[in-house]
Amino acid sequence: MIVEAIVFYMFSTILLLSGIMVISARNPVHSVLFLILGFFNAAGLFVLLGAEFLAMILVIVYVGAVAVLFLFVVMMLNVDMSRMRDNLKKNMTVAAVVGFVLLGELVWIFSNWHFSEDAELNVQTPFSAEDAMDNTRALGEVMYTDYMLFFQMAGLVLLVAMIGAITLTLRHRPGVKRQKINEQVNRQVKDVLRVEQVESGSGIV
């Protein structure tokens, strides 16, 4: 138990510290790297809780995919932090207003928040304790039965977002040379090559 406690405090301390560093680091690339460190420690906490599936998915999805793209963009942008800071001071009042409105809305929603009875039952006993399942299976059994609708809806929301991102960035530029693999593969010798016997002194028309 002592070891678990020590590891827990280690993970959570590093998690909180790296969270603070994300917003206070001067260099945006450092911020992203601290964010990744934070994700890692969150995954460590999940492992401590015995939720190894969630921990691995957190690392795969957030660290392995999302944060890579973050890092990509931040590295390429070459952000000038001092100018950003000036802008921040200028827009401080607007930002504060928006922030407080959002906070108010969240508080309002969560004060009226309540679970349906089925969901409450699931929260108390996500899966029956007698058949010992690993948590991958346990998650699957809840997710694909009771929460099937929400699961599908989440998928649809992501699909819409993806299609939206593609339509926003897709441009058809005319006059771009592209490799057409099919045409290349289907090219026959007889279509493109002609062998002729040429008599000396005469040319080919």
Partner: peptide
Amino acid sequence: NVGILYLFAVSSLGV
């Protein structure tokens, strides 16, 4: 239990 996911996670970090 999730060995293959662990491998996948670590190999995706190589980048």
